[in-house]
């Protein structure tokens, strides 16, 4: 169950993401999307946030030992923080390349493993930061501004 707290202008919600749980995988991103819709945010902003959260959620399910996604909604932006407990990414630059994937055949049969998740997150984000330590885990921070400068 996500924990939703409305602290004045800031709303914060946290989703626990279990590794290898392919039945529930994607639930958090769908819940986040519904929450953002209830808040009446711009559909284009919602779409970018939902896509980034979903790709990040699937990466935690597929590639990690499990983790959390915390989302802060402020008057300026949607901040998505993802954290998992390993195994970490040895070569981040490679992982960010379109088409690079270490996903197994089993994962590919489910429609993942194109090596497009991290690039999709980057494209959806106004700001994007990734940090990873082998053996410890991966952190992702995605910022989506309500008013993208376009």
């Amino acid at each position: 169950m996500p924990d939703v707290r409305d602290v004045g202008a800031l709303m914060s919600v946290t989703y626990d993401i279990a590794a290898r749980d392919f039945v529930r995988a994607g639930e958090a991103a769908n819940k986040l999307k519904r929450l953002l819709q209830q808040l009446g945010l711009d559909p284009a902003v919602i779409r970018r946030a939902a896509i980034a959260a979903y790709e990040a959620e699937m990466n935690i399910v597929i590639h990690s030992y499990g983790g959390q996604i915390k989302v802060d909604i402020t008057p300026e932006s949607i901040e998505i923080f993802c954290e998992d407990s390993g195994p970490g990414i040895p070569d981040i630059e490679k992982a960010l390349q379109e088409g690079y994937s270490t996903a197994s055949e089993e994962i590919r049969e489910m429609g993942f493993g194109a090596g497009m998740g991290l690039p999709n997150i980057q494209k959806s984000a106004d700001k994007f930061r990734i940090e990873s330590a082998v053996g410890r885990g991966t952190c992702l921070q995605v910022t989506i501004l309500h008013e993208a400068g376009e």
């Binding site: 994607g26 991103a29 779409r47 429609g111």
Partner: peptide, 14 residues
């Protein structure tokens, strides 16, 4: 594909 993930993906992008 007929995996449950197709439905989850559909939800994300309406």
């Amino acid at each position: 594909l007929t995996s449950i993930q197709v439905v989850r993906t559909a939800g994300v992008v309406d």
